[in-house]
Design a protein around this nucleic acid. Structure first.
Lengths: 211, 211, 211, 211
DNA sequence: CATGAATGAGCCTTCATTCAT
DNA sequence: CATGAATGAAGGCTCATTCAT
């Protein structure tokens, strides 16, 4: 087999993979809305297909099963989320500014993306009962932890202080805060979004100490 | 119709109601185990019935639907949980003692009751998607908030300090911590139970300030 | 619990079991025709249900799965078959008479029950590929072996001779003969039924030897 | 149009046909393994394609349907099988030698080719339910009959005896024996292979008679 | 009251087949 | 010729729910 052929085959194979991945992403994106609306358990693949321009057969063609689709959908959403605050961190010039910016951003995504956020919690909840989800959930949780830590760590630095809790603790606390706010927001409690900034600021203040 | 008869009827009716309630409690208790094992979505009424000494027909008689049963089951469990730390609070004589006792108790129930705790989170997760669970979840969350506050508030008092966060924040933070620990514990991470006391103590310390 | 109650419960339980078994038998009998017409692989439970007076749900209620239904159906048919020749054996007064009677009876069932016989071979064929069928197939094959041996053994006795092959060999040979005849009969070869008696008689003669 | 062109076209056409046939053979050979492993009903064209170096689209190009492929695959295998014992017959110098050689060869192929043998029985079983297989099955069975007859006939000749059963009967009997042995062998019964030689010898002895 | 037989909608998944590239 | 993306019918199975006993 000549080198030229080898190369050509490899190029085709790569392109295939890309196309496959693109289609997966496309389908996952299409599935995201339906999943976020009904939750994993109540959403059928047929329903997802009907809300998209594809047949339900194609979902099975691109995903090994329903769980695979859910994971991919959430992963895709989180892919964007976990860098959500990075610009804030990069642009921050004062502790107060970062704290406020971060707190406001959290409230903003709570208001804007509530339905998709609950899908993440749905996935994590599945993992409490089903082994097969755990690997992905743990991985995503780690990335979320890092995301939060980048904020908290920089915040302390700007404040000339140190964080008094470990990254995982900081994440767990803020995640707990967000989850509660999400619940209240979905229960049509308008205070949820309004109060969140102050609460988050409160937490940030509580977990640093002047050096 | 004589008064005596009226009274007797009422007595019977009351007894009936009591019996009805007792039966519900009995069935909910029997369901708890199966629900905790499989989660709400994966548990069928048949499965619950098979793991109990009842027929599945009777479940439909005493509960309007699956959701009704789940709520009753978790409510029953929480009835115990929401007072879990009260004795600790009553017996505490020092801040350090309460902090350690509370942290250890949390780790203990994490290890002992993991499967039922995840059922609570499952219920709360359901409520993110399903209206019908929300009222109960909100109520339970409030009682859990109170429970946590009794600990935190007393801890600060013993330490001659004040809590720097509101009750709901304290609860949300500690619940976030516990949820993470539960996930890791269910993932067979032995560190989850071992590390929890220190983490909880860390959080408690972080949210009080000397007066 | 009083003895009376115990007894009553046991009686009810037994009656339940009987009713359950009866329904299974009823459903298996109803399924037999459809299965015999299309074969295991091509027959869907829905189709079976449609050809009966039941819903397809009830099939799942009484049978753990499709294989269970097939096995039960065949087993029920064979239950009758394996005694098919016993009256002949009991009534036989001469070797020639038994031989002729047996050979004719085989041809008769070939003509009358061809479609159901092929279902037995279908089941046995499944067992070549699927473990889960093997236990039942082996058991049924053993009973068929015994059935044949009762004939062959008695035939030799009446002829004042001994059988020169073991029971299993006698069965395997005659089964091979029958299977071939069945194939030809189903291929609309009229000779199949007509020739079978002579062939069977031929085989019987070949496997005994004067003492 | 010149003769030369005509000829050239014909040559190309012939070559095409050959290539077509070759390709079919190649694909059938690749399919054989998967079919033998899973059986006709459980094997999908996708599975066959995945276990080969071909796409599943090409299977549809070269075969009209699954049945066509199965028949081609088994026919290919049988091409070898139907002459399996011919060398034995040609080389045989004594009745005992041929009998032993044949019996041993049968046991050997039972042990070595069990999975492909069951595919043959699977095909024959299909033909009990499906017309479309019958022509091929009948033809193959005839060739198998001839193959067995060449052995049996020669064996009788060497023994100075005559066969007491017709060719078809001899084949049906030995095939029944082999089918039973195959079942037991696939059930992990080690005796199946070990006992077969004696059984086959037994049968051969039983169906000849000194002239 | 309690049972469990029966229903049938709905789910996930498989697969032969078609067809644009 | 060959590929593999896409389709959609069909299948086995689950399950909440109904209802006669």
């Amino acid at each position: 087999m000549s080198e030229a052929v080898e190369t050509r085959r490899a190029r085709i194979a790569r392109r295939q993979v890309d196309k496959f991945g693109e289609r997966r992403a496309e389908l996952a994106a299409a599935a995201l809305h339906t999943l976020a609306e009904l939750g994993f358990a109540r959403t059928s693949l047929r329903e997802i297909a009907q809300n998209s321009e594809f047949s339900h057969g194609v979902l099975h063609y691109y995903f090994s099963d329903k769980a695979d689709l859910l994971t991919e959908a959430v992963r895709q959403f989180e892919e964007i989320c976990v860098t959500r605050y990075d610009e804030l961190v990069a642009a921050a010039t004062s502790a107060d500014g970062l704290r406020t910016g971060f707190a406001d951003a959290m409230a903003a995504t709570l208001a804007a993306d509530a339905r998709v956020h609950r899908l993440w919690y749905d996935l994590r909840n599945q993992s409490l009962f089903d082994d097969s989800f755990r690997k992905d959930v743990l991985e995503l949780d780690e990335r979320r932890t890092d995301m939060i830590w980048r904020v908290v760590d920089r915040y302390a630095e700007l404040a000339g202080a140190t964080v008094t809790v470990a990254p995982r603790i900081a994440y767990a606390m803020l995640d707990g805060i967000f989850e509660q706010a999400l619940l209240r927001h979905l229960c049509d409690d308008d205070n949820a979004v309004r109060d969140l900034p102050a609460v988050v600021a409160n937490v940030l203040t509580a977990i640093i100490a002047k050096a």
